[in-house]
Design a protein around this nucleic acid. Sequence first.
RNA 1: GGAGACGUCGCAUAGUCUGGUCUAGUGCGCAUCCCUGCUAAGGAUGUGAAGGGGCAACCCUUCCGUGGGUUCAAAUCCCACCGUCUCCGCCA
Length: 424
Amino acid sequence: MIDLKSLREDPDVARASQRARGADPELVDQVLAADEQRRALLSAFENQRAEQKQVSKSVGKASPEERPAVLAHAKALAEQVKAAEADANEAQAELDRLLTQLPNLVLDGVPAGGEDDYVVLRTVGTPRDFTAEGFTPADHLDLGQRLGAIDTDRGAKVSGARFYYLTGIGARLELALLNAAMDKALAAGFTPVITPTLVKPEIMAGTGFLGEHAEEVYHLPTDDLYLVGTSEVALAGYHAKEILDLSDGPKRYAGWSACYRREAGSYGKDTRGIIRVHQFHKVEMFSYVRPEDATAEHERLLGWEEAMLALVDLPYRVIDTAAGDLGTSAARKFDCEAWLPTQERYLELTSTSNCTTFQARRLGIRERTEAGNRPVATLNGTLATTRWIVAILENHQLADGSVHVPEGLRGYLGGLETLEPVRP
RNA sequence: GGAGACGUCGCAUAGUCUGGUCUAGUGCGCAUCCCUGCUAAGGAUGUGAAGGGGCAACCCUUCCGUGGGUUCAAAUCCCACCGUCUCCGCCA
């Protein structure tokens, strides 16, 4: 949710933001109109209510002779107030409805346009030349099956398409990755957290995932709970309705959780292997910072992501996501994409978003300052996910189907240097 | 799953039976000031949140776990839900 007061003062910023996202700038004016309506009806209600309270109070003091007249007056007022309140509530609901449709304001410098209008900030590392090495790389599923690491057939048998088992070295590899990520986070001063993965509607809505992309989220109607698509949700909700003290610097949490995504609307996309799945694990960084520190924190989160990519020795690029491809809550987003040899394309491995005060305002997360309480800024970023296994297997494979273990991970795999196939 | 108790302004607590003077009292804590010749004691004032109006001083509305209801009027009465605790049952 964006700030109504600043929207009133300077609606052009919001209109420009909407245009950059390829969204409708008209929505801004609808919000402003609804706000005006709401304030008018609210004032009317409050004035009537104040009068009613006065009259009501005088009932007790009235003499027996006056009482019937006063009571009648009070009764009439009560009717009016009830109607006025209903009108004011309706106007408030309409404003809320419109306001929650408005996504966060994009920051200056974010490229305008849609999914393909990203800007490449840098490219790090060099993809291997498999032609020069004299063999055709196998894809991650072939490699994973030969290593006895990935079993998508049984995943489909038990749970359906886009489910999988990680077995043997596959399971160990995921634990190694996530443990490495947790260690990195710990070293950077994050508090490790294992989060709930089922959350209440208000938390899911507060993080902005029930807007346009509500279809992506699993919902359990019997209990009215949502399965999180990332621990960002639970970590954003962690301090909901709290007033924080950020005088000692940002509050940083590293969440470890399973993540669930319906992948609605991605039929036929990335159907092979474990690139796009309904359930995976992730270590996620989450920061609560003062609004003026958000941009610097965003750079720091990106830095820690790149350090993780360096640890597993993958070639990647960093992109500045275009406005139209930002989530509802994000004001800016950087993705790190690793090179995927068999598809000759880059694959998103991490994503870090600066949500400015958007989530905090919805969730009621504030900090106390001299000038009063104000919403904080929230940011998130990926440190590792199950998907990283895809890039690690493909980029570090050898001609015989074995896989070289990047040095940074060996300590988490009992010193193992090579993953050996268990079948041809 | 069954039975019961409880949920009040940072913390503690009064108020709920018997609806109106609750504009929610008191203590602690905190802040500012005063007094005091001293690592003490005392005194005064202030002390939450959200929203609205006003150039401003300031005023108004809402909030007593949440949401409904009864009533001219609800912290107080009724209903549902949530949470905490105790006991019993069941089970890891």
